Amino acid sequence: MHASVTAIIHDCHEATEQDRMAFPQILAALNAAGIEGYSVDFRRSTKAYYQPDGDSLELSFQAVGVPVAAVFDAAAVQAAIREAQAGVAGYTYRGFCEKVMAAGCAGYIVSMLGRRVVYFGRTAETHVELFPQ
């Protein structure tokens, strides 16, 4: 992976953790760098970023500290997404993670190509969220 792409990934990764960039800004920066998608694994506290040629970069993040609930509650996951999209007062990425994990979300996959995010639970139940138009 080219050093300039790695630097953009690291910047976006840190910006997410520090609430410096919103999700659409992160997507735009990663897409411009040639990243076609990424995955978040809450149980391992990792994010993996993927290029079309199969190259990838995995980064760790600080564990959220909330266990992934056994039951996947798609409505609660969707409610957390709507709060993020609306930019409600006090929104943080960490708070978003806490809410979706408490709703049984074990991770999610972001596809720039498919213009969607697939949230999944421990039993592989899913909620698919299309990128806003």
Rank of each mutant, 00 (worst) to 15 (best):
Ala15Arg: 09
His13Val: 05
Ser60Glu: 15
Leu57Gln: 05
Tyr49Gly: 01
Ser4Cys: 01
Ile109Thr: 10
Asp11His: 13
Gly54Arg: 05
Ile81Phe: 09
Glu125Ile: 08
Ala106Gln: 13
Val117Gly: 00
Glu58Ser: 11
His2Arg: 02
Ile109Pro: 00
Leu130Trp: 04
Thr126Ser: 10
Pro132Asp: 15
Tyr93Arg: 12
Ala103Thr: 02
Gln51Asn: 01
Phe61Gln: 06
Asp53Pro: 05
Met1Gly: 11
Gly104Met: 11
Gln62Tyr: 03
Leu27Ala: 08
Gln85Ser: 07
His13Pro: 00
Met112Lys: 03
Gln25Met: 08
Pro24Asp: 13
Phe42Gln: 01
Asp41Asn: 14
Pro24Met: 15
Gln51Tyr: 02
Ile26Gln: 03
Val64Trp: 05
Val64Cys: 02
Lys99Met: 09
Ala84His: 08
Gln85Val: 14
Gln78Glu: 14
Pro132Phe: 10
Thr16Gly: 06
Ala15Thr: 07
Ala74Lys: 06
Arg82Gln: 09
Ala74Tyr: 02
Arg82Ile: 09
Arg122Ala: 06
Tyr119Glu: 10
Gly121Cys: 06
Asn31Tyr: 04
Ser4Lys: 15
Leu57Cys: 04
Thr126Gly: 03
Ala32Arg: 11
Asp73Gly: 03
Ser4Glu: 01
Val64Thr: 12
Val71Ser: 06
Leu59His: 03
Phe96Cys: 03
Val110Asp: 11
Met112Trp: 04
Ala33Gln: 06
Gly65Val: 10
Ser4Arg: 15
Lys99Gln: 15
Val100Leu: 12
Ser39Met: 14
Gly34Ser: 05
Ala75His: 11
Gln25Leu: 04
Val64Phe: 05
Asp73Glu: 08
Pro52Val: 14
Ala89Gln: 11
Gly121Asn: 02
Val100Phe: 11
His10Pro: 00
Gly87Asp: 04
Ala69Trp: 00
Tyr91Ile: 06
Val77Gln: 04
Val110His: 08
Ala15Val: 03
Ala28His: 02
Phe42Leu: 08
Leu57Trp: 02
Asp41His: 10
Arg43Asp: 14
Ala79Phe: 09
Ala3Thr: 05
Ala80Arg: 13
Ala15Ile: 07
Gln133Arg: 07
Glu36Asn: 10
Asp73Arg: 12
Phe131Glu: 03
Arg44Cys: 05
Ile8Ser: 06
Arg44Lys: 14
Phe96Ser: 01
Gln25Asn: 08
Ser111His: 03
Ala28Tyr: 00
Asp53Leu: 12
Glu58Trp: 00
Val110Gly: 10
Glu58His: 00
Gln51Arg: 08
Glu129Asn: 08
Phe120His: 15
Leu57Val: 09
Pro52Glu: 04
Glu129Leu: 03
Asp19Ile: 13
Glu125Ser: 09
Ile35Leu: 12
Tyr93Pro: 10
Gly121Leu: 02
Ala124Asn: 13
Gly121Pro: 13
Ser45Gly: 03
Ala103Leu: 06
Ala106Asn: 07
Ala106Leu: 11
Gly37Met: 09
Cys12Met: 13
Phe61Trp: 09
His13Ala: 12
Thr46Glu: 07
Ala15Cys: 03
Cys97His: 14
Leu30Lys: 07
Ala106Arg: 11
Val66Ala: 01
Lys47Thr: 02
Leu113Ser: 14
Glu125Gln: 15
